[in-house]
Amino acid sequence: MEKTVNQKAWFLVLPVLVLVAFSAVIPLMTVVNYSVQDTFGQNQFFWAGLEWFEEMLRSDRMWDALGRQLMFSGIILAIEIPLGIFVALNMPKSGFWASFCLVLMSLPLLIPWNVVGTIWQIFGRVDIGLLGYTLDALGVNYNYTQDTIAAWITIIVMDVWHWTSLVALLAYAGLKSIPDAYYQAAKIDQASRWKVFRYIELPKMMGVLMIAILLRFMDSFMIYTEPFVVTGGGPGNATTLLSIDLVKMALGQFDLGPAAAFSLMYFLVILLISWVFYTVMVNLDKKGM
């Protein structure tokens, strides 16, 4: 659509600007403020320059949390994206069963995040949970509060359970937009099922898949509530992801300086990924027109 230049449109965006500035810029400036100051309590602050940033960059704590975070995001992407595409390919095309699947698949997406945690906390318990009980009965030694591997598997399966449907729904939307003529052409050429997927479905899904990948990466990168409810970051620090560590530091220990420096570096990473996301979106919009 052709847009006209109109500077008065600023008046229409002004309320958003004011509101988001109040809820984003002011708090962020507080963080910037803390990140360059030190305190002895009683609200007495003095300039600390970049000390906190240097300290954080040198501390193993942040790098460990970042490592765990990247591992977590990497694993869930590696599972959810292929699984989501696979589910989308198997979804009914239209009619009652399509609606039926859509409704049931959306259900986990709409559950409050701490309830998701609670569901899996219960589900995995050896004494009262179906999963834990079954595994125990099969002779598997499974205890997600004590064992690192079990804790990791639990939070990964939980995330797959929670979010794979989103990938599937997006891929499904991409699949539905493919014109039938493409399939007819493939049929005439006697293309195999794999070739149809590789040369028709996958390229046509690429745009929405990029959105799915970026959304899942962003959201898993700042995940807090679900693993916190299930494992509390434990055993030890085994499942302490970035957000969990940050909240521990800021609200638990009240280490304002380091936490603020941590926050800003965290935010810069997010900013970078947002930029990639934005570019993808804009390109997609251009193609759509």
Binding site: A24, V31, M218, M222, A259, Y266, F267, S274
Partner: peptide
């Protein structure tokens, strides 16, 4: 996309 964890303390 901003992580709520970053904003928790300043909001408080």
């Amino acid at each position: 996309m901003a992580p709520p964890a970053v904003f928790a303390l300043p909001f408080f």
